[in-house]
């Protein structure tokens, strides 16, 4: 466990840089983490991030299938918004734990 200064706030992160206290999350922090991941954040990104935060808060698992069916974004756009490792990057930016599912 470590503390990292993101957007002028000291936030708790794990060794992979995922925030460990979702309540510390702000849009400014998200923008900053996105920048570190090479993503210029847009309103569309925030729509997806809001969906992810809601899902995680309600205790549901995240899968690419679920995202595709969310009505917020389809799988193809999701890959375009968060290129490389989409679910890993999106959860990191959303300030929630890295998903543990294989799908």
């Amino acid at each position: 466990m470590a503390t990292k200064s993101i957007a002028g706030v000291n936030v708790e992160v794990n060794e992979e840089g995922y925030m460990t206290d979702a309540s510390q999350w702000t849009k400014e922090i998200a923008t900053e983490i996105a920048k570190e991941e090479g993503i210029e954040i847009t309103d569309k990104h925030f729509e997806v991030i809001d969906y992810i935060r809601e899902k995680v808060a309600s205790g549901e698992g995240l899968t690419i299938r679920g995202i595709n069916k969310s009505g917020v974004v389809d799988a193809k756009t999701f890959y375009q918004l968060f290129p490389g490792a989409p679910l890993k990057k999106a959860t990191k930016i959303a300030g929630v734990p890295k998903p543990v599912s294989c799908i």
Binding site: T63, I64, F78, I103
Partner: peptide, 18 residues
Amino acid sequence: RLDMPPVDEFLELIEAGG
């Protein structure tokens, strides 16, 4: 139950990811 998609949907998800 584990949210594993049917084969056709799975192929589409893989295609969507490149």
